[in-house]
Amino acid sequence: MAKAFKYGLKGITGYLEPAERDLLRSLIHDVISMLQPEDRDGQDPLAALIGLDMDVAEPSDRAVKRLLPNVMKDDAGASLEFRQLTERSLRETKIGALRAAALDLDKDEIVLTPDGARHWSMALNDVRLVLAERLDIQDEEDAEHVHLMQDWSQAEDVESYLALVYNFATWLQESLVQAMLQSMDSRR
């Protein structure tokens, strides 16, 4: 059974069972594969190098769109223009945090630097955002409903399994953020 992250002399530490690490690793890789920019033929290599992507479009997958939202609420044109300039590097930032977290999963005991903790919190958040879209969590009521699902022996279908995984990721992120807030407090 996983232990909650805590802040102590060694920094922020946590412990996960091998099965829990495998689960997180596969979730992280799923999110990375959703964020990986597709290689398109004929793309200007220099533009790609500096992060420009003139062929970018608003994501059609709701989960990807939640990870890479429009920057203006009621202006699709301006949002698209902004995407051309920023989306590629935003994808890379997210993939970087997810990969860093995945690397930390090679050991049972996880010891995090402040940067490592930030990457973990971002990675867990993106994993939860994707799971929440798959679970169709649209409002606080839906979130409450999913939160009630805590018993692994009741996981009978994909939805209840996803709900349990979501709740596990939520618990883990909450314990991590509490440890990060404590560590910030101690540095003030």
Partner: peptide, 8 residues
Amino acid sequence: HGFGLWAT
């Protein structure tokens, strides 16, 4: 957006 917050 990098942190996963919904910002405009």
